[in-house]
């Protein structure tokens, strides 16, 4: 039974189509990455998932049932644009947000203290939010989303604006939560994080689903046709018939082959021509490459370059 199931949801604002016929399922206990370039409809989709807006057509099911506001207490949500009450003390703020999620005041208070310790911000507890650094505020918001021990955790760009140490702390927390059996959905355009963390992904572009599935499925759909060669000497092997594209950065070459099987042929050819090979690595495509390729396909080349670079 999927924990989130979207069926052909569609949302139009005035004339702009934000989400167009998006269907996806998220299985319980997985770490799910929602990917897409800026303005592709990630946030709009998430908002429909948690009933903040209602899709124009299509259905949203949570926990195996049609959407119901009562199930919102089982969801923790970290919005993309963070916000806290500036003048409120940190602990009061956490207790208030916990109570909104159905906790009693005492429970919210004791859990907030535990989490503050876990997130290493104990010294901030008695302070007002406006006195804290951006990173600390983000951690507080992170805690607020988790205080009521939700089964489904939805985070919109959770790592943006954090330094590497804190980003790692948050990543590890998410991994721990997944190990405890929670389902985590997060959106991002940082591919390295997705590759490291996610079990499954969905890539959307222009409000449409481009590809979805488990990380292994997605990758296996793309051929292992990339080779990195570190060499010295003759470089004429780069012109071999099996090579589709090659870039040579003075001794380090990135090669794209026509077929997976071509790697061995090219290696044999290079050795035959007397090139000294220091390293020869057949690589699977990175998620970033898949992402760029897919987005490019949905936009057209030129446009995609601008979007992906941004």
């Amino acid at each position: 039974m999927p924990i989130v199931e979207l069926q052909k949801i569609r949302k139009v604002y005035d004339t702009k189509v934000a989400v167009e016929g998006l269907s996806l399922t998220i299985e319980p206990g997985t770490m799910f990455g929602l990917l897409g370039p800026n303005g592709s409809g990630k946030t709009s989709s998430i908002r429909m998932m948690i009933g903040m807006t209602v899709p124009d057509s299509g259905t949203v099911s949570l926990f195996g049932k049609p959407f119901d506001r009562a199930s919102l207490h089982r969801i923790g949500y970290l919005p993309e644009e963070r916000g806290l009450y500036k003048k409120m003390k940190v602990l009061d703020q956490l207790v208030f947000l916990g109570q909104l999620h159905g906790l009693s005041e005492a429970t919210a208070r004791s859990r907030a203290l535990v989490w503050c310790e876990r997130m290493q911000i104990t010294e901030a507890i008695g302070k007002k939010t406006e006195e804290l650094s951006k990173g600390m505020q983000q951690k507080i918001q992170f805690i607020a989303a988790l205080l009521h021990e939700p089964e489904l955790i939805i985070m919109d760009e959770p790592f943006s604006g954090l330094d590497p140490v804190n980003a790692e702390l948050l990543q590890n927390t998410l991994i721990d939560l997944r190990r405890e059996g929670k389902t985590v959905l997060f959106s991002t355009h940082r591919m390295d994080q997705v590759e490291k963390l996610c079990d499954s992904i969905a890539l959307i572009s222009r409000g449409k689903l481009v590809l979805t599935g488990s990380m292994r499925d997605v990758k296996s759909r793309y051929p292992r046709n990339r080779v990195q060669v570190v060499f010295s000497g003759d470089e004429s092997f780069l012109g071999h018939a099996e090579v589709a594209e090659a870039q040579n950065y003075s001794g380090v070459a990135h090669i794209k082959l026509h077929h997976e099987a071509g790697a061995q042929v090219v290696l044999a050819e290079a050795i035959a021509r007397g090139t000294v090979i220091n390293r020869f690595e057949v690589k699977e495509p990175t998620l970033e490459e898949i992402f760029i390729e897919q987005v490019r396909a949905s936009f057209g080349d030129e446009e995609a370059r601008g979007i992906v670079d941004a």
């Binding site: 903040m52 919005p79 644009e81 916000g83 806290l84 009450y85 500036k86 909104l100 607020a144």
Partner: peptide
């Protein structure tokens, strides 16, 4: 104030 501090989004995730 709630709009400029963007708190509403957290609130609207649980309440109407």
């Amino acid at each position: 104030e709630e709009k400029t501090s963007r708190v509403f989004e957290v609130l609207l995730a649980t309440i109407t």
